[in-house]
Computed example of a mutant assay.
Amino acid sequence: MTYLETAAQFYSEVAQTPEVGLCCVQSAPLSLPGLNIPVKMQEMNYGCGTTVHPAELGSQSTVLYVGVGGGLEALQFAYFCRFPGAVIAVDPVVAMREAAISNLEIAATENPWFDAKFVEIRAGDAFNLPVADASVDVVAQNCLFNIFEPEDLTRALREAYRVLKPGGRLQMSDPIATQPIPKHLQQDERLRAMCLSGALTYDEYIQRIIDVGFGQVEIRARRPYRLLNSEIYDLPDHLLLESLDSVSFKLPIPEDGACIFTGKTAIYSGSMAYFDDNNGHILQAGIPTAVCDKTASKLAQVIPEDLIITDSTWYYDGGGCC
């Protein structure tokens, strides 16, 4: 049995018998006025963070959600995109699709604004998305891509890139590893299916996003997710997994490399009213300006004595320069 077959079997089981807290960060789902989330849908919250970022959504956005789970985030996306077929939710597991349809029917009885037609459930998988090229505004996935082997992850990212419109957004939440995960854990198919052994390091994860063509990546959250105990998992030391929420934009990669925003700011501390690097970056004295990591590094080399670069906050939601 391949790791993908193991994952399909595992999620068929937890679709029929929900396993509360399976892999989600222990926090309440996004709370929105007038949004009521059915209990079973909450129990099937098999994500590690959130992919629903309201600032990225418009009333006419079309969202492709990969790996529907219990339908929770499909419902949240529909809250912002209220028209038939606004959310296309894809899943290869029959039992999971059936559970999501049932949960969304319950949601329609508990939410006067929601029509089950807002969400269309389709059979399909991350490697063969059942939509046309450049046809959706947002592709989202929560705690799915991390179970893939690295080359399969690249295949899934390429497929997401294919279906996005120019300027479209790939909104993801996945575990990442603070240290490379040893081979004996990577090869444990059930641990991989449980989102415990397939995670890449931050640098590896971001580089694969860039390699398929995304020109801008913004980190929305980075927080502790799970600890792999050294004794239980036969490790030399405890290994911390983190949850990373990101938004990647289908924009051309600049000649000097992709723009990765992690919450850094640049502050000009010199005696002039402002500093202009003649490359599109103007810093007013004493005022923090959001910059991507690439620009922060370049500015630090130009005026190291009159510049403060703040640490990554691992949260960024717009503004600044690259």
Rank of each mutant, 00 (worst) to 15 (best):
V52K: 09
V52P: 13
H53K: 08
P54N: 06
A55L: 07
E56G: 13
L57P: 15
L57A: 15
L57I: 15
L57W: 14
G58V: 13
G58M: 13
Q60E: 08
Q60V: 11
S61D: 11
S61V: 12
S61E: 09
T62Y: 03
V63K: 01
L64R: 09
L64H: 04
L64N: 05
V66K: 03
V66Y: 02
G67R: 02
G69V: 02
G69D: 02
G69A: 05
G70C: 04
G70Y: 05
L72I: 06
A74H: 13
L75N: 15
Q76F: 10
F77M: 11
F77R: 14
A78W: 10
Y79H: 08
Y79N: 06
C81I: 15
C81A: 15
R82N: 08
F83A: 11
F83W: 10
F83R: 01
P84G: 13
P84V: 09
G85A: 09
A86H: 11
I88L: 15
I88M: 14
A89T: 14
A89K: 06
V90S: 02
V94M: 01
V94D: 03
V94W: 12
A95D: 14
A95C: 10
A95K: 05
R97E: 04
E98Q: 13
A99H: 03
A100P: 04
I101F: 07
S102D: 10
N103R: 07
N103D: 05
L104V: 15
E105K: 10
A107R: 14
E110L: 15
E110T: 07
N111R: 13
N111L: 08
P112L: 05
F114A: 06
F114L: 08
A116P: 14
A116V: 11
F118Y: 15
E120M: 12
I121W: 14
R122A: 05
A126S: 05
N128K: 11
N128F: 09
P130H: 00
P130G: 01
D133R: 11
A134L: 04
S135R: 08
D137N: 14
V138M: 05
V139L: 02
V139I: 11
A140M: 04
Q141I: 07
N142G: 09
N142R: 05
C143W: 01
L144S: 03
L144R: 02
F145W: 06
F145A: 04
F145M: 05
I147G: 07
I147W: 06
F148D: 00
F148Q: 00
E149H: 08
E149I: 00
P150Y: 08
P150S: 03
L153Q: 06
T154S: 13
T154M: 10
T154L: 12
R155Y: 06
L157C: 04
R158T: 00
R158I: 01
A160Q: 09
V163M: 00
L164N: 03
L164Y: 12
P166C: 07
P166V: 10
P166S: 10
G167W: 10
G167T: 11
G168S: 11
G168T: 09
R169A: 04
R169F: 02
M172H: 01
M172K: 06
M172T: 12
S173Y: 02
D174A: 04
P175S: 07
I176G: 04
